[in-house]
């Protein structure tokens, strides 16, 4: 639902781009500065940009191969979700930003949604437990059922999905299960590039190989994988400048994420990594459903997380 067709083939042709479709690269030979694809097409390069995106992450629980287990990943998945009738029941597994957006989008389509999250509170990397509860309540009030500390045991059904069973025996009736995505970094890893949760890049989107760059959902910048909300325009500008030998730095400090679906205001900005030299200021106003968290380092604000607060976001 969030994917939009942009450049058509004509744009690539007009700009002299050689376009290989349906042709995954299987080998990066960094020593020879050469890539090889599935049917042995070889291309030499001066600079390589890896944009492998994300891949479905479907835990191998029993029933995970049933038709109707999908990820919120590409246009085909979106089509499948749109084809589901209003009032149908869907379980979304993973209460991260991506999963919550999927759950909220589906709810807007009139779907009966249950979001499962393994951890005790939602978005535990970005929000402290109190704010996680606030967000959970906001979703619950708007009709999305949220179950935290939910360990999926199996997807039930024989030829189609009938429900999801949790480790504690709870069964949630549904006809479709939406699972998460992870940065696709197998190719980068196999070629010996540094990877963590994603392909590790510096402020120029450069990997630990000076001639190789990564951007988009596959990249990890300052400890953050941006996922579907990668600020591609800004990152693209930095990388383009770098490739033409102009100085450019991408600083994640101004990167913000807004989750404004079903009228929940959530604003996240900055580097949510760990650090001992950080100072936190937190304001919680439970009566007004407002949470504000600022993280300071060297007397500068490096993180802002606002939930339920409209006035101070950009």
């Amino acid at each position: 639902m969030r994917e939009i067709i942009t450049h058509g083939d004509g744009w690539y042709i007009a700009n002299g781009v050689t376009l290989h479709k349906n042709l995954p690269v299987t080998l990066i030979d960094r020593a020879a500065k050469r890539v090889v694809s599935t049917n042995s097409i070889v291309a030499d390069y001066d600079h390589l940009v890896i944009a492998t995106g994300s891949r479905p992450f479907i835990p191998p629980v029993p029933g995970h191969q049933l038709p109707g287990v999908i990820t919120y990943h590409d246009l085909d998945d979106v089509d499948k979700m749109l084809a589901v009738a209003k009032g149908s029941k869907i379980v979304v597994i993973n209460g991260d930003l991506f999963g919550l957006e999927a759950a909220a989008d589906l709810k807007m389509q009139g779907i009966d949604v249950t979001a499962l999250h393994l951890m005790p509170t939602l978005m535990e990397r970005q929000l402290d437990p109190a704010a996680g509860y606030l967000l959970e309540n906001a979703f619950t009030e708007r009709g999305v059922k949220v179950i935290t500390q939910s360990n999926t045991k199996q997807v039930l059904g024989s030829d189609h999905i009938e429900g999801v069973e949790l480790a504690d025996g709870t069964v949630i009736e549904c006809s479709m299960v939406v699972m998460g995505i992870r940065p696709a970094m197998a190719l980068a890893k196999a070629s010996g590039l540094a990877v963590n949760r994603g392909i590790v890049v510096d402020d120029q989107m450069r990997t630990d190989d000076p001639y190789t760059f990564a951007l988009g959902e596959c990249a990890e910048h300052r400890g953050t994988c941006y996922g579907l909300v990668a600020p591609l325009y800004e990152i693209g500008q930095v990388l383009a400048s770098t490739l033409v030998d102009e100085a450019a730095i991408y600083q994640s400090s101004m990167t913000s994420t807004k989750l404004k679906v079903i009228r929940i205001d959530l604003f996240l900005a900055g580097d949510f990594g760990e650090g001992e030299d950080r100072e936190e200021i937190v304001l919680r106003d439970a009566s007004a459903d407002i949470y504000k968290r600022l993280v300071l380092k060297d007397d500068r604000i490096i993180v802002a997380a606002l939930c339920g607060e409209k006035a101070y976001g950009p």
Binding site: E3, K21, N22, L232
Partner: peptide, 22 residues
Amino acid sequence: FAVAIFNAEPRVNYISADAVAN
């Protein structure tokens, strides 16, 4: 630059709505 794109998928031309919004 001579640019070559290898794409595993049949479509190369979609990006997220957030990027479009930007």
